[in-house]
């Protein structure tokens, strides 16, 4: 475990809590893309199937359970989740690897409906932009984590993860710029 990865995972977890806090505070999910939330749900379900096949560490298992559980409560896709689990559960180990790759690719683009929604309306409230920043920060730090692990360990992260992770972080680039130049100075998130 290195500091980049730990902070990245905590940002990822934090992003979900920010989203829940926002829905509670404003009692509304306006400005949050349902498509993105549904895609993220699919991302978690297809990737963390490995919960049943391999054990890495308690940290790893607990975090995967957190992401699955919180995401389920978040968008109330319990029924869809159960159906997906039922469909995929009987599959063998190799299928899990294929689904893992699918999940990685899907995650890279899952934020796009949300970003498109913000491009269309040209603005987002501050809590929503904190949420997206936490997600983007998690992805960006994972890249640093991979570089760190490349030099500190004799194994390397999968090339699928590298390519998709860099594409995904790239999608956040414009958002990061607006976030740093406007939101952190207390202004609204508004596209120029």
């Amino acid at each position: 475990m290195n500091v980049f990865r730990l902070v990245a995972d905590l940002l990822h977890l934090g992003s979900i809590f920010i989203l829940i806090a926002r829905i509670h505070q404003t009692r509304s999910c306006a400005g949050i893309s349902l498509k993105t939330q549904a895609l993220y749900f699919l991302v978690f379900v297809t990737r963390y199937l490995d919960l049943f096949t391999s054990f890495v560490s308690i940290y790893n298992t607990l975090m995967k359970l957190f992401f699955l559980a919180l995401d389920t409560f978040r968008v109330e896709y319990v029924l869809v989740g159960a159906a997906l689990f039922a469909l995929v559960f009987p599959h063998k180990y190799k299928v899990v690897e294929i689904l893992w790759s699918f999940s990685i690719y899907l995650e890279a683009v899952a934020i796009m409906p949300q970003l498109f929604m913000m491009t269309r309306t040209g603005e987002a409230d501050n809590i929503t932009s904190h949420y997206i920043f936490a997600l983007g920060g998690y992805r960006a730090l994972y890249i640093v984590n991979w570089i760190y692990r490349y030099y500190s360990e004799d194994k390397y992260s999968d090339y699928i993860a590298w390519v998709a992770g860099i594409v995904q972080t790239g999608l956040y680039a414009d958002f990061f710029y607006v976030y740093f130049t406007r939101v952190l100075k207390g202004k609204e998130f508004k596209l120029p």
Partner: peptide
């Protein structure tokens, strides 16, 4: 150098 198993990260 080998690829790390995919289940290690989140």
């Amino acid at each position: 150098r080998q690829a790390r198993q995919t289940h290690d990260e989140l």
